[in-house]
Each structure stands twice: as C-alpha cells, then as structure tokens.
Write a protein that binds this DNA or RNA. Structure first.
Length: 903
RNA sequence: GCCGGGAUGGCGGAACUGGUAGACGCACGGGACUCAAAAUCCCGCGCUAGCGAUAGCGUGUCGGUUCGAUUCCGACUCCCGGCACCA
C-alpha cells in the first residue's frame, strides 16, 4: 500500500474498475449483479433516485456538483442497503442561452449545445457518480422531442390543448418577441427600443382542468417539504367567493354625479350600452360597503370609455405599459382615473362610479373589483387618494377575544380593517357573521340573476408557444383551406433544422423555406408550417419517465416505466418549487388519463437543496459603476475578532470592498470552477466538502480552508489505514473478552453505524454523518493497545468507517477497502449492521440540576433504582451547596439523562 | 404588498421527541518534530471574574407556559428566497 494519498491515481483506478465491471448499470431484472447473487436470488426492491437534469450551459458549476453529489450519496447508500437502484442523467438542452450564444459567437445552437454536453458529461464522469450512462437523453434530440409532439397531438385531440391569443413583449426594432428577462426597464436588451405588448395566437395547455386535483393531491405527498406544497397551493390559488353582477345602462344622460371633470364624451351619439359588470369577490359580506368600482386597463368597459376620452386612453396605455408582476403591482402607488361611467349596486340600486385602476389585474377573476375602502387595504389607499367615500359595514362580534384584537388594531390608528366580523350599516344583513352574510347576499343576488357563489383559481392555463428557434417545433400546419391541421403521427418528428444561427431578429425558422413550406396533410395544397416552438418546461415535464425506456423508438413509454416509477427520491433546486414540479405533476396526470402510465404522482420524496454561496468583492468606480472580483484573486483583511473587513487585489494590492456572501454567479464574478477543485484535490475532496459544510437543504458557503480541511481528513483516513495495514492485517472483531478501552471503541463503532444509518436514510443530513465518523476515528486514534484483540476491534472500526463513508467518497473507499480486505470489492459490500450487544453500557452518566441549573453529574449502573439515583444526586458535594438547608420540593428524574432537584 | 424560509462562539454548523447549548470542522493561540519552512502530531479555545475548584451571563428582541425552553405559545426586529416567457 502506498503511504501517500494520491487522489488522482486513486480516482482514475476506481473509475476504470467501475467502467470495466459495469458497476453503475441499472437493470430491470434486479438480480443480475454480483451482490444480488449473494442474496440467493432474492428479488431486490427498486429505488429510483433522480437529480434534476442540467441545462448544458458549458461547464458544471458548484450547484450541479452539490446536487449530483447528494443524489449519488443516496444512490450508493440505497444500493448498499440492497436496493436495485437507478440513477440516470440527461440534458435539458433546449432554451434561450443557446440562442444568445449563437447571437454572440455565430455558432449554431445545436453545435454549441452538443459540444457543451460532451464536455459536461466528462466532468460528471470525473466526479465518480453511480450513473447509468446508457440511459442518457438530451431533450434537443429528435428521438426525445418527437414524443413532446406526439403527446401534444393526443392532448389536442382530448381538448387539453387549445389556441387563443396571449400577450407577449414585442421588440419593434428586432421584430422579435422577448422573454421577461430580456426586457430591462421596459426596453429590449439588445436594441434599447421601448417594448410593446402584443397579442398573438398561442397554444395553451389546459392545466386548470386539473387544478383541483393538483391541489388535493398535495396531501398525498408527505415526502415533500411543506414549504414547496405551500408554494404550489398558493400558486393554484383556489378561492371561494361570489360572482356579482353590477348592471349598467349607459347613455350620455347618465354622465352625472361626481364632479370628476372627466366626461366620457360621445354626447349625441345616442348609443346606449346595456350590460352587467361582473366582479369576483371573496368578501361578499362587504358588498353593502361598496362605494366605487375599479376595472383593469384591458377591461372592455375601460376600452369603451376611452373611445372618446383621450386622457383616459393615455392613462390606460400607461397602465398597460406597466409591469404585470405581482410584486410591483402590490407595492406601486395606486393610481386610477374615472371612466365617467356608472353602474348600479345590485342590491341597493345606488349609482357607483367606475374607475380604471392600475392595481386591478385583467388576468384574475373578472378583471374588475368592487371597491370597499372600509375593509380592503388597496381600496382604502385608492379611496383616500381620490376622495371617494369610505363606509364601514363590518363590526367586531361582541365577544371578548375579538374585542381585544380590535383594540389592538385601533391602537395602530388604521381607519379600516379587513378581518372577519359581523355586518353593520348593511340593512337586512346587519348582525350576520361572514358565513351567514355571504349566504344571504348570494341568495338575494341569485334571485335577481345578479350573482352566484363561485370558485376562482389563480392558476392560469399554461401557454406553451414560444416565438423562438431552439425548442420543440409545434406539430401544426396552417392551411389556407383547412385551417390549423395537426401533423399526422407518421410524419413525426417534425425535425428542427440544426444549422440555423439566430441573429436576434425574429425566429430563423421563418426564413427556412424547406422547413416552412409543406403540403397540407388534409388537402395536399401548399401550406405553412407553424414556426413557434414549445416552452422548455414541456421537455422537463416528463424526462424522468423516458430514462426508463430511452431506447424505445416505437413508444413514448413502456412497461419499464411501470417498474421504475414513481421516482423515489427527487433532488433539485428550490427555484423549481412551483413551475417545473407543477407541470410535471400535470403531465403525469394527463398521461395517466391517456392510459400511458399507472402512477398518480411522479415524485414520492423531494429534497430541495440550497444555493452555493461565495464572498462578493467589489469596487465602485466613479459613475456609479460596480466592478466585481473573484475572491481567489484577492487577499482578505480581518479585524481583531477575525471578521472580514475588506480585501486587497493580489496582483496590485488595491483595496476592494467586501459585499458579504451571495449566490455564485457570473454577474458577481464569484464562481469557483469545479474542474480546478477536482484537479487540485480530487473528486472525493470536492464531494466531502459539499456534504460536510452544511445540510443539503441549507445554503452552502464556499471556503478554501474548508476544502483544505476536507482534504486533510481524507489524508488522515488514508494514513490511519496505512499504518494499521503496515502493522499486519487483522480479522475484524467478532467475539472475545474486551478491556474497558476496547469495549468503549466497539461501542463507538456501533453507535456510529446507528447514527450514520439514520442520517443517511431518514434525516438526509450528511454533515452530521461525516462528523460522526470523524468522532469514531478520533476515538480510534486514542486507543494505544496493540494486542491482537485490540487490533481486531480497530480493524472493525476502520472497516466500518470506510463503509460508512463510501457513499460520499467512493474512490478512496474503493482503494482502502482493497487494502483492508485484499481481493474484495467494496462495491459488493452490504451496509454494516449494528451489533446490539455492543451498545449495552454497564454504567451511565446522569447530569444533576438544582432548579434547572447544572450543578454536577453522577455515574450509576445502567439499571440503578430511582431511590438510589436520588440519594446519590443529593449527596453530590456541589449539589449540596445549592440545596443548602432548603427543603427539597420535588425531584424530577429523566431516565438515562438527568436529575433535577427543585428547592 | 403577499407567501415561504432563516437568525446559535471569530466562522460553517450540531443539539432528532422540552432534558449536559456549542458535537464535528475551519480560523486562531501554545507546544513537539525540523538548520528552517511546509506537511504532520499534541494541547487550548463562548463571554466575564478567579491561580484554581467554581460562579455569573449567554441561542436576534420583548413577554409567557414549564421543575427545566435554541426547542412550545404571543408580539416584534432584521436578513434571504419566490411571486407567470431565464433555466
């Protein structure tokens, strides 16, 4: 055995061995691997461990390394526990960055993407993951995306895909549609032109048809983090309320009332407009407090009123230009303008002015709200600003609990409140609580045909059309005679030409005659192919199914999907908590209803890993510009307590400002290249550092010293095995008399197995598992006894440490196991078992408290009686000082833990 | 604004079900080895007082429940993430 730990040699040798033995293949039969044969043919349970596939951006970043290491640790642990494990890998290969790269470098997105995939695959292989590479897939491969098209057509047949207009960001100079991220301060990122909103026809998937099921089924996912389920529930946004109609009969004569100074005009035109303005509200109990109506800028009534009112038209344009982002809507100043139109209150008949409000969303509910400034914060702000009346119609119920709450609220001096109470100033509804008031009001509205209870969803249908090149072509042909014709199945896939080079001005497919011009599948006459492509979330909505059968060119899925699915453990970033996971759940349910899969939900357990952070160093130059620097290029300065105060650029010593910790990103220049890390310390050190520095769900702070520490630990582990082996191998301990020292080490060994098994299997907390093994090795290093029995106990401890660490650092584990057990392969070893007899302790230590404060400890036999424990505790010298002459009121004994004497 | 998450030594973090706060590691200090350095090994390390035994204080702030609270409850402060065409 070599004395020095050489990660490079160890890792290459281990990887060659795994490659040669096919150690990472996943077979459906489950009984073909060597370790399974040891089980006398017993069929293994399957375990599907999946990490979210990467976008092939060029090279791996630390977030990938972390994500895939977590998955690999779980995979290898489960494998050792006797599961038939599948861990696949693939590429989320369509998307905007490839087009941006094409614009920048003139390289076709296809070439750029495939080159990136080749490089990143090498990087992943260098990390030693237990991945079955024969199942690899890339979503930009026609063999994959043809099934996007195929399922799209099935959904079209079922009415789950439909066409309607949608709003997009339009860059008038480049004549192209922009993603939100390409719009900066309302202008195109490349051209700087003011971006317009345009309505264009798009395809939508009817996810709202599944809204209720997607919401209900969250309760069937105990293995998902609560916060992810909360985010999804919130996103789906089911709310119970009442749809209320406010009738109007608009003629020029009705333009009276409030002196707004704005006239809707149209006098003499004589058109009367009759109808009903519909709103959705969850607070129908406040209907009698309505003092105005507010509609969205896109609302038909607003459009109508603006026809002859230039000022209003201008305001509407301003609103439309504004952001549709909820965060901005919620915090921006409430602005409005009266339309000059009035509607009738459905119950009181009172005339209510209709305003256009910038805080009303056309896309939610009916695009209009009833303004109840007495009991809604936004309405209140709006009414205050424009001098609209505020009417209180809810009073706190007459009970003490509510009154306290009310008083607290009044103390904040807010003249409105929106909590639930009983109706006042509401005529016949006075005295009714929320539920009864809503029922009564809904019934009365129903009798007049002006309202009914309704359930509204925040979730909207999923618009999948993208006016881009690098994506799955939508399999539709537009025929002047036959309309939109689906591409027949036998003509699939509609292959994307791979040699296009987008230049940023429009979709290059529109310039491809051979792609564009086709014969109509129905009538055979010249027709035009759809050039929109699909949202890349389509690609990622079902890739986890395809891993099971990526070689099937006859069907989207087959019976192997029934074997492997659902995914037992899914691992990925929290940033996908809503969209990707919701769309995947939706597709699973659609495929279930098409009899393609048998599962209800795709992912049984979900782990959302935290971000990888690093120091941010910056320098502000004159004109408000900020320049960022990579921490590896600087020396840090610390204060007396060791806190970072600043840094200096290594190359010229110039001062840099410290900007704290932030997510590794290109823009902040604080990324660390995993490749450099692997080259210097090896994959095992990288993996160990990632797993040791923080638990998977929390963010991870990069630290050069931390990496050094992980490397040092592996060197130490290597040396301990080396020294043990150099002194002659031993058989691991099985039976025989043990000294106290050896018994204690053996206790540590088995206690560590217990802790680590729980950390890997139940808690998914690897940092504490590693800490536990470190403790074991610390304990081992302290044993000086070298008699044969002691060496056997040490052999057992070392073997255990290597086995327990193997899922995290497989290469060194592979090498050390060969030394400890010449001729055997750790890849065939089972997870170590706890020997219960080793965990039996003769004596235990109990802490003694007096009035809850620690005052001493006693050591007692493990089965000591309560009386004896109390007696010993009271006799402790230090304890006596605190009891003094006071009477003991009570003694609490927590078995195995402590004694608390209360005086 | 809404929703979600978080706050523990100089730092990353541990304490799983209300029971020894600070495991493990990093940084730092001291020592051994060395001509010297690196590497490695050993010891110390929450704050304050004390030579020490030990004591007081201490888990963002304020209050509550309890024999006992980092953990449970109430109010608050600050930080981070998400909020519909990036993936």
């Amino acid at each position: 055995m070599q004395e020095r730990y050489d990660p490079n040699e160890v890792e290459q040798s281990a990887q060659r061995h795994w490659e040669a033995t096919g150690a990472h293949r996943a077979l459906e039969e489950g009984a073909k691997s060597k370790s399974a044969a040891l089980e006398a043919g017993a069929k293994k349970p399957k375990y599907y461990c999946l990490s979210m596939f990467p976008y092939p951006s060029g090279k791996l970043h630390m977030g990938h390394v972390r994500n895939y290491t977590i998955g690999d640790v779980i995979t290898r642990f489960k494998k050792m526990q006797g599961y038939n494990v599948l861990q696949p890998m693939g590429w989320d290969a369509f998307g905007l960055p490839a087009e941006n790269a094409a614009i920048a470098n003139g390289v076709p997105p296809a070439k750029w993407t495939w080159d990136n995939i080749a490089y990143m695959r090498k990087q992943l292989q260098a990390l030693g993951f237990n991945i079955d590479w024969q199942r690899e897939l890339a979503t930009c491969d026609p063999k994959y995306y043809r099934w996007n098209q195929w399922l799209f057509l099935r959904m079209l047949e079922k009415g789950l895909v439909y066409k309607k207009t949608g709003v997009v960001n339009w860059d008038p100079i480049d004549q192209t549609v922009l993603a939100n991220e390409q719009v900066i301060d309302g202008r195109g990122w490349r051209t700087g032109a003011l971006v317009e909103k345009r309505e264009i026809p798009m395809y939508y998937m009817n996810i709202t048809r599944y809204a209720d099921e997607l919401l209900q089924a969250l309760d069937t996912l105990p293995g998902w983090p609560d916060r992810v389920k909360a985010m999804q529930a919130n996103w789906i946004g089911k709310s119970h309320g009442v749809n209320i109609g406010f009738p109007y009969d608009i003629s020029p004569l009705s333009h009276e009332g409030r002196g707004s100074g704005v006239r809707a005009g149209g006098e003499g035109s004589g058109d009367r407009l009759k109808g009903v303005l519909r709103v959705f509200t969850t607070r129908a109990d406040t209907l009698m407090g309505t003092t105005f109506m507010a509609v969205a800028a896109e609302h038909p009534l607003a459009t109508h009123a603006a026809k002859n009112n230039a000022q209003l038209a201008a305001f509407i344009e301003e609103c439309k230009r504004g952001s549709a982002m909820e965060a901005e809507l919620a915090t921006q100043e409430k602005k409005g303008m009266p339309t000059g139109l009035f509607v009738d209150h459905p119950l009181s008949g009172e005339k209510l002015p209709v305003w256009v409000g910038n805080y009303v969303l056309m896309t939610y509910g009916e695009g209009a709200v009833m303004g109840v400034p007495g009991h809604d914060e936004r309405d209140f702000a709006f009414a205050k600003k424009y001098g609209l009346p505020i009417k209180q119609v809810i009073e706190w119920p007459d009970n003490a609990a509510a009154r306290t709450h009310k008083d607290a609220f009044d103390a904040a001096l807010q003249p409105w409140y929106c909590d639930y109470g009983v109706c006042i100033n509401s005529g016949k509804y006075d005295g009714l609580d929320f539920e009864h008031a809503v029922d009564a009001i809904a019934a009365d509205l129903g009798a007049k045909g002006l309202g009914e209870k309704q359930i509204t969803w925040r979730l909207r249908d999923w618009g999948i059309s993208r006016q881009r090149y690098w994506g799955t072509p939508v399999p539709i042909i537009h025929c002047p005679g036959c309309g939109d014709v689906p591409v027949p199945d036998e003509q699939l896939p509609v292959v994307l030409p791979e040699d296009c080079v987008p230049d940023g001005s429009g979709n290059p497919l529109n310039k491809r005659a051979e792609f564009l011009h086709v014969a109509c599948p129905k009538c055979g006459k010249p027709a035009r192919r759809e050039t929109d492509t699909m949202d890349t979330f389509v690609d990622s909505s079902w890739y986890y199914l395809r891993y099971a059968c990526n070689d099937n060119d006859k069907a989207m899925v087959d019976e192997r999907v029934d074997y492997w699915l659902p995914v037992d453990q899914y691992i990925g970033g929290i940033e996908h908590a809503i969209l990707h996971l919701l769309y995947s759940r939706f597709w699973t349910k659609v495929m279930r209803d098409l009899d393609l899969v048998k599962i209800e939900e795709p992912f049984t357990n979900l782990l959302t890993q935290g971000m990888v952070l690093n120091h941010i160093l910056l320098r502000k130059s004159g004109a408000g510009r900020v320049e960022y620097f990579n921490p590896s290029e600087a020396e840090f300065q610390h204060d007396a307590q060791g806190r970072i105060t600043g840094a200096a650029l290594t190359r010229d010593g110039s001062a840099l400002e410290y900007g704290g910790m932030g997510t590794m990103s290109k823009s902040k220049m604080n990324g660390v290249d995993p490749q450099a890390l692997i080259q210097e310390f090896g994959a095992d050190t990288a993996r160990l550092f990632m797993m040791f520095t923080s638990p998977p769900e929390q963010s991870l702070e990069w630290s050069e010293e931390g990496v050094q520490g992980s490397f040092r630990f592996l060197k130490r582990l290597w040396r301990m095995v080396y020294e043990h082996v150099a002194a002659g191998l031993s058989k691991p301990y099985t039976t025989g008399e043990l000294s106290v020292e050896n018994k204690t080490l053996r206790y540590s060994t088995h206690h560590t197995i217990q802790r680590v098994t729980d950390d890997y299997g139940r808690r998914l907390q690897f940092n504490t598992a590693i800490a536990a093994v470190m403790e074991l090795l610390n304990a081992l290093g302290k044993v000086g006894d070298n008699a044969p029995v002691a060496r056997a106990v040490k052999q057992e401890a070392l073997e255990t440490a290597v086995l327990l660490l193997f899922p995290i650092v497989p290469h060194i584990g592979h090498a050390l196991w060969r030394e400890l057990r010449p001729g055997s392969d750790i890849g065939n070893e089972r997870w170590p078992q706890v020997d219960a007899s080793a965990l039996v302790q003769d004596e235990i230590e109990l802490m003694i408290q007096v009035n809850g404060k620690l005052r001493g400890s006693i050591t007692v036999p493990k089965d000591a009686a309560r009386d004896a424990i109390e007696k010993l505790a009271r006799e402790n010298e230090n304890v006596k000082r605190f009891i003094d002459s006071q009477a003991v009121k009570k003694i609490v004994v927590v078995p195995g833990r402590l004694v608390n004497i209360v005086v």
